[in-house]
Nucleic acid binder design. Structure first.
Length: 202
DNA sequence: AGCACGATTAACT
DNA sequence: GTTAATCGTGCTC
């Protein structure tokens, strides 16, 4: 496995149906360059949020200062703050003008584990990046990373090709934490994760 | 200007 | 199983 390929995934990868992008991100490497240290993790869980119609997607509010990035070209980071304390990392998908993004919910830590431990204030590897708020804390991702280009080679936030799991190893299920989002959006199986992987969130 | 709530997490009982 | 933490965003007045 080439886990130091330094090769970012091409923008065309993100220029597809959001659910497909979310599914195909499984197995890819999320890479974060922070203070000279390379932090990385294998993506094991991701969710699709697609269009103004999707009432679970922030774009349901239309174009606003916050959602503007989702209307832009694919391959850019959409990072937002929620619950007064957590940052969520997304990758913008689909063509410019159509708002959509993939929430990266969990990664299996690969490189820079000691730094992640320090950032998270804990040693337990299985909990470092198990959940969207945890992984951004472990990789020092917040407001400043909003709008970064995942496809630019020198970007401090990139996605590199990895070993994609077989279709039989992928589970699709409803998205997490949607609260009172109405049907049919509440039940859409737009969450993808690697079957039996212990780094997937609960 | 004020309000309700959130694509969550850790710490409880 | 329940709940506090904590604040930006979008909506209503």
């Amino acid at each position: 496995m080439r886990q130091n390929s330094q090769t970012s995934i091409p923008r065309s990868f993100f220029l597809r149906r959001t659910e497909i992008v979310a599914r195909d991100l499984l197995g890819c490497l999320l890479v974060r360059q922070s203070n000279g240290t390379r932090l990385s993790g294998r993506i094991v869980e991701a969710e699709a949020y697609r269009g103004e119609e999707d009432l679970a997607c922030h774009a349901k509010a239309g174009r606003t200062k916050r959602t503007e990035i989702m209307y832009g070209p694919p391959g850019f980071a959409y990072v937002y703050f929620t619950y007064g304390m957590h940052w969520m990392l997304n990758v913008v998908a689909e063509k410019e003008g159509f708002p959509a993004a993939v929430l990266i919910r969990a990664v299996e830590p690969i490189e820079g584990i000691e730094v992640m431990r320090r950032l998270r204030g804990m040693n337990e590897i299985s909990l470092l990046c198990k959940g969207p708020g945890r992984l951004t804390q472990a990789m020092a991702i917040q407001k400043g990373e909003n709008g970064l280009d995942f496809c630019e080679k020198a970007s401090s936030l990139r996605i590199e090709p990895g070993v994609n799991p077989d279709d039989r190893e992928i589970i699709a299920s409803p998205r997490i934490g949607l609260g009172k989002t109405p049907e049919p959006w509440l039940s859409k199986s737009w969450r993808f994760c690697i079957k039996g992987n212990s780094f997937v969130s609960k």
